[in-house]
Amino acid sequence: MTQEHDLLRITDLQVDFNTFEGCLHVLDRVSITARMGEKVGLVGESGCGKSTLGRCIVRRVRPVAGEIIFWSERLNNVEDIVSVTDSIWKQLRKQIQMIFQEPGAAINPVFTVGDQLRAAIRFSAPTHIGKSQIQRRAIELLQEVQLSDPERIMSSYPFQLSGGMQQRICIAMALGVQPSLLIADEPTTALDVTIQEQILRLFNDLVSYHRTAVIFITHNLGVVREIADRVYVMYAGQVMESATTDELFENPMHPYTRGLISAVPKLTGGGIIEGIPGHIPSYLDPPTGCRFCTRCPDVVPKCDEVRPPIGSINASHEVACFLYGGEAS
């Protein structure tokens, strides 16, 4: 794992929101990496800061500390997204695309799909290209996301299409820019299960085909298992555990990960599963140590005082918990 191959390396990212109630410590020293073409899952329950992390990468949220190092193929250079100038960001941003939870909200309601798709192609083209060429590319993209009858789709307005179709269009627009990193923020959560399956498969095929690196933000462990090569488990703004997907599901180590996996409702088993008792701690005054200590079944006294260091179990498995060694420094 040489650092040259890291497409994105986030180190010790810290985000605070100032509100009337006080300062919310939303992200606490989060570090994640994504290599070229790697599919990284980011799991955690609602409100754990995973979307905030995604919005930091696209500069919608300003972190108070930490860095987001992005390797730009086009500039052949690494840049810190947190501190780059606007003019460099203008070149960087096309290499990072985002897909959103609500596909309907990501398409402008007052224009036809074709208008927007063509605009997206025009902006992403390195040089000026002709109208017929844009049109051909737009049709190509819609075919790529398996929308039949592209001409008709292009002349419709977003609200005339179903959620699944809208999300396909969003994927087409994002991939049309040929990004090296795609941030997918719960892209299938708003869709029903059968459509979700189709979209996931399509998404998976396309990013593998284009070798796009993906940060897949979701609360759904099943989705992560299908998509991701590697998974980060987040809780209340801290990364608890990271491992390759198979490793994580076979050998979950952090008490939170184990709780999360056992809390997934099974289609086969009867009865309501227990889940994890308790709630996410307040971001106003979270424990200074591990933020899961208020709900952890295996809590030890020092947990709420000292942040457990991230320990490597093996080359591809890291966990931040005192249960697995790691003396307080």
């Binding site: 696209v58 985002m98 959103f100 969003c170 627009m173 820019v177």
Partner: peptide, 9 residues
């Protein structure tokens, strides 16, 4: 959609 367009360049 404004963010999406902005990210698209």
């Amino acid at each position: 959609y404004v963010l999406a367009a902005e990210m698209g360049g």
